[in-house]
Every structure is written in C-alpha cells, then in structure tokens.
C-alpha cells in the first residue's frame, strides 16, 4: 500500500492510496501512529483515495481516533468516499470521526 505524507503548514496529512484491508491496515496504522506521535495530534487522514475498507481497516481507524481521544481530539477524515462513509454509517462508527469535504477544510479546522 502506498501512503503519502504531506505537510500543510503545521498539519501532517496522510494519504493512503488504495483499500485499507487486511495487512494493509496494519501498515497504515503503523505509519499513522508514527505521524501522530510526531505531529502532536495535528494530523489529517486524506481518505479520498481509499475506495473501501474492511474490519481491520475500520479497527485501524478506531485505534487512531482512540489514541487521539486520550488527548481530547478525534481523527479528522477528509474526502471520504461514499463507500467508506456508508461502511461507517452501517457500523455506527461514523460519529467517532470528524468528517471534512476535503483536506484544505480539514487543515483549516486546526486554526
């Protein structure tokens, strides 16, 4: 799985490319935890290039938002596709994240 890391000001944007499933979920979570530790929570996941995800993928996202939750933040998801949003709505996990239309809006939410 290709995961791009971009800087938008003081905010780090992680952009996984492809579905977050099975072993890719572990790879994504490890990369995200590394960024999370470095960025002190100034962190956005650009989900626009994630066509779908399975339960390990959901667990990875929940793990990240839980980690952020310990410091009063929640995971910001930008540009999540309809399929991803539908999965989250069906599992009742959508409320565990903050959703933004695109990365710019998500980054601006840190102001």
């Amino acid at each position: 799985m290709d995961i791009q890391e971009q800087r938008h000001g003081a905010v780090t944007v992680l952009r996984p490319q492809g579905p977050i499933v099975q072993a890719d979920a572990d790879q994504f979570k490890a990369a995200a935890m590394d960024v999370l530790g470095r960025s002190m929570g100034r962190f956005v996941v650009d989900a626009s290039a994630v066509p779908y995800l399975d339960s390990p993928g959901l667990e990875a996202l929940i793990g990240l938002t839980d980690e952020l939750g310990a410091s009063g933040r929640v995971l910001r998801l930008a540009g999540a596709t309809d399929t991803v949003r539908e999965v989250m709505d069906l599992t009742g996990l959508s409320d565990r994240f903050e959703h933004f239309q695109d990365v710019t809006t998500a980054v601006r939410s840190f102001l």
Binding site: M40, G41, G69, A70, S71, G72, R73
Partner: peptide, 29 residues
C-alpha cells in the same frame, strides 16, 4: 478534563504536578 484538547495541569504549592489531563501529556511529550 480528558475530553479537552487544551492541556490542563494542576500544580501544588511546590510547583509539582498533581493532575494532568491527556492533552497536557501529549503537548509536553
């Protein structure tokens, strides 16, 4: 307090930490 994204630290009379919320621990690493 843990739900705050601002770090909150309570000090005693000797400037020692007697409480810190989750955000504080992240912000001071």
């Amino acid at each position: 307090c843990d739900a705050l994204w601002q770090g909150l630290i309570v000090l005693d009379a000797a400037a020692r930490v007697i409480y810190a919320n989750g955000a504080a621990s992240v912000l001071v690493r």
